[in-house]
Amino acid sequence: MESDLRSELSRQGVMIVSLEALYNWGRSNSLWPLGFGLACCAIEMMAASMARFDLARFGAEVFRPSPRQADLMIVAGTVTKKMAPQVVRLYNQMPEPKYVMAMGACAISGGPFKQGYNVLKGIDRYLPVDVHVPGCPPRPEALIEGLMALQRRIMRQRLTGPERPRHLQAGEASELPVPTLGARDIEPPYHAAVWRPPRVARAS
């Protein structure tokens, strides 16, 4: 439908949308994050939900304590190897459709603690991350921008065809294998289905 006609109709009080747009609009504006703080970034996540930054303006203020009720996991802080199996398990417990946001340098890559023997070098080794929010810690504004990026992403999703998201594809696994803690290190070091070590091309 031409946009002229649509805007003319909406001026008359008639709203016509595709089911896809309505569905995506509804989903993107009521993301329920898992109240799940790991480290420093969690405090900025809380600050974002408080009065000054007011995450509620974007429909994402309903922090749920249980993964069964949440559809957005904000990995806010350093993921240690000891914690990584629990993070994957929490992800598995979330119902589809679900999204993961890596908040802060540590969740993205290990950040300042990358050299640590007990620090996971980025949660995307185990989980499919939708949005990365850089910063150490990211300001609440940055978190809100990350949330809006996720909303734009949801708005673009097609409900039919081969491009449709995971939760609408039959046979697509929504649970990921949980890593185990070995005698020296976490095993396996990453899930090949979600992540591959990048090949580094170096000059010199």
Partner: peptide, 22 residues
């Protein structure tokens, strides 16, 4: 560290796992 971990990481001769290669 977790139960079942072997080694004592703060010792000076502890060799860290080889996992931040790039």
């Amino acid at each position: 560290m977790w139960e079942g971990f072997s080694g004592h990481p703060m010792r000076k001769d502890y060799v860290e796992p080889d996992d931040y290669e790039y």
